[in-house]
Design a protein around this nucleic acid. Sequence first.
DNA 1: TATAATACGGACAAATTTATCCGTACTTGA
DNA 2: TCAAGTACGGATAAATTTGTCCGTATTATA
Lengths: 115, 115
Amino acid sequence: MYERKTPVNIDCGLHLFMEVMNGKWKINLVWCIYNEIKRPSDLQRKIPNATRRVLEGQLKQLVNHGILSKKTYDVKPPKVEYSLTELGESLIPIIKSTAKWGEDNREELEKLIVK
Amino acid sequence: MYERKTPVNIDCGLHLFMEVMNGKWKINLVWCIYNEIKRPSDLQRKIPNATRRVLEGQLKQLVNHGILSKKTYDVKPPKVEYSLTELGESLIPIIKSTAKWGEDNREELEKLIVK
DNA sequence: TATAATACGGACAAATTTATCCGTACTTGA
DNA sequence: TCAAGTACGGATAAATTTGTCCGTATTATA
């Protein structure tokens, strides 16, 4: 596993948010799970651009950061389901308003963000 | 300059937000400038953990993304001031509510985020 | 009996971001 | 004249994140 060399900085609340939500696919993951797509294979199908390996890593971080909880059913074939914790739920309004900002300004932003 | 190999993904509004705000010091920069600390050297003093070189880069991106505008005074010694654009201003309430989420959950998050 | 589906993980490579070290130019004040 | 302040940028190294390629195990279905 990778070992950090420099400490995370969390001096302000927004940094805390970023620390938790940074990661190429985390937003998608949280959003999917909020929308009841909660099994790893389903998430993978829903977000085909991400590789399984990376989704796995980001899911693990979200669990570690207290945003998601993971339930493993002891069945064969294996079954796993993620769900939002209370902390994760509290993120939903933030995500919504932030996403709204993006959509409200999409036209302008798309011009500016170099692809 | 660095040339991207894979396209940015901006399928949802939150990705647009992240695209604009990702960057280790961008939040600090926007917040400082909102609070009237707008000259490069002052920003540097206010955020001493960041190197000048990196702040410069992030300021440039914020300008390119339409969040900041840069005014260069034609004087000696040189004087430069950044300020929020209208788009940048529209980010302030988002930043505030997001920071509030972080502060409201700081105790819990600090335990979870591995330093 | 192969194939696909379920889920997970190690080792390593590629991409990206952040930091370091160099140098430019001009001016004011000691 | 020398140090310090103002602002900027190239080249490259280090840190970090993301992606690729391998392999494990079990079960149901064709």
